[in-house]
Write a protein that binds this DNA or RNA. Structure first.
Lengths: 254, 254
DNA sequence: CCAGAGAGTTTGTTGGTACAAGTCAGCCAA
DNA sequence: TTGGCTGACTTGTACCAACAAACTCTCTGG
């Protein structure tokens, strides 16, 4: 009656306990697979299954030729999403312009982003949010990769209806930094947001662009902005690696 | 110069393409490992590595004795977190009481939750939010497992400072359903929330309680409620499986 | 007609081996 | 001293074999 749990589950549990207890500290090197085989008296195959399980749980990282290590977690950045861009103008109007960049800079870190602008048909979910015909309508897309201190931090893709932003600074490929945000530079005023946050595993593409460790989930934050008439102005889709982000909202009865 | 990519990567890529193209539809059974072995002319081990990779990405599920299947994604439930409990009283004052239960019921589904109430020392992060001394202070803890149509849906644990809710209905282990929410039943009024959302892989315990498929990340939603004097009243930690939830916020300039 | 045994199928677990491919320290030669 | 190289070490990939466990289906016996 004692044999239901596979050996590699038991080994994974044992190692997980050591990690939780702190007997194996973050950053510390684990015994080699060879040593674990003799310690637990199982085959290397079984050891690798146990290690794989812990890697899936995000507790380990391994490097060919060097060993396996207890994963180090870094302090996640907290970003308050309940602040309207139009409001933040007051604090951030001096130089940086971009709300994100100025908040990072104010934190003593160096922000940096690569921007790519293109015009193309929007994906189906974006088209729906913007009340556009996915098959016919065009959107101006600003794709950004955001870095903090040279480390990739998030992907932020914005979609604007092409008709709204034609011939505005928005279409310049530069890192637009107008006071009050890119939308204000196009003469558009957002008065309301609708945010939807989903959680999923990253695609292979996202893993590479964000240099994600194994089994790091991402939050996908989709913000749709509306003007005072309720017309959608833009959709911004931000992909946030789970190991380096906290999404914050403040809600109050006014 | 052609041999960098391991075989099992190539096999995984091929199968992933078939899934993306729709050649392998959701719910459809894959060829057996034996068949894949002969098709790709590799060992069963290598096939299993490829399948494991896709399982990690959340594209497959496998069942012993039956086969491997393209994972079916179910329609996630959208929950609007920007609504204050005190406000929602107007819509939900008739019978159900609990804001969550009434919203589910209004959606034509049957809500159900198991409640467990206990008194104990809070975890460190909760103590910090409540301005309590983690070593000394006590909290009343309401742990709930929420079900929709018999399917586990979320974990929701609430922590109240023991001094605030002593001798109130809150401490009853029943599924408290007072109009305006449990806090109102204790004479407490929340006027402000602070929410923090993090994303991570589930623990083994959460996997079992929520019956999570492999490689399903969770969103952890921590809501701290304050009264009009800025004193923290409670912390609610909700664990939301990524495959069945969309977190929504509406933000507007008042 | 139905329950249950049993055979067959399929994935899960565990053992083994061999070589490839990174990493690193130390040695040797210029 | 420095540069490069070798060799030891460690994880990654790939193969093979065998049995366990869970499921499906058929067929048989009551």
């Amino acid at each position: 009656m004692a044999k239901q749990t596979p050996r590699y589950h038991a080994i994974a549990d044992d190692l997980r306990n050591q990690i939780d207890r702190g007997a194996l500290a973050p950053g510390q090197k684990l015994p080699t697979e060879e040593e674990l085989t003799t310690h637990y008296e199982v085959s290397r195959n079984t050891v690798r299954l146990a290690l794989g399980r812990l890697t899936e749980e995000g507790l380990l990282v391994s490097a060919q030729g060097r060993g396996s290590f207890v994963r180090e977690r870094f302090e996640p950045a907290v970003w308050n999403w309940s602040v309207l861009e139009s409001r933040s103008r007051h604090e951030a109007n001096h130089d940086a312009g971009d709300q994100w960049a100025s908040q990072i800079a104010g934190n003593g870190q160096t922000p940096h982003q690569e921007v790519k602008v293109s015009i193309r048909r929007p994906p189906a979910d974006v088209a729906r949010q913007l009340n556009l015909d996915a098959a016919a309508a065009l959107t101006v897309v600003r794709e950004r990769v955001r870095y903090v201190d040279r480390e990739p931090y998030a992907l932020a893709d914005s979609y604007f209806p092409e008709a709204l932003v034609r011939d505005t600074p928005l279409m310049l490929p530069e890192d637009v930094s107008a006071p009050g945000g890119v939308l204000a530079s196009a003469g558009l005023v957002q008065v309301r947001f609708s945010d939807e946050i989903t959680v999923r595993m990253p695609t292979r593409d996202e893993i590479e662009r964000l240099v994600l460790p194994a089994s790091t989930p991402v939050a996908v934050h989709m913000r749709t902005g509306y003007d005072k008439d309720g017309q959608p102005l833009r959709v911004m889709i931000t992909t946030l690696p789970g190991d380096r982000h906290v999404i914050r909202y403040d809600v109050s009865a006014d």
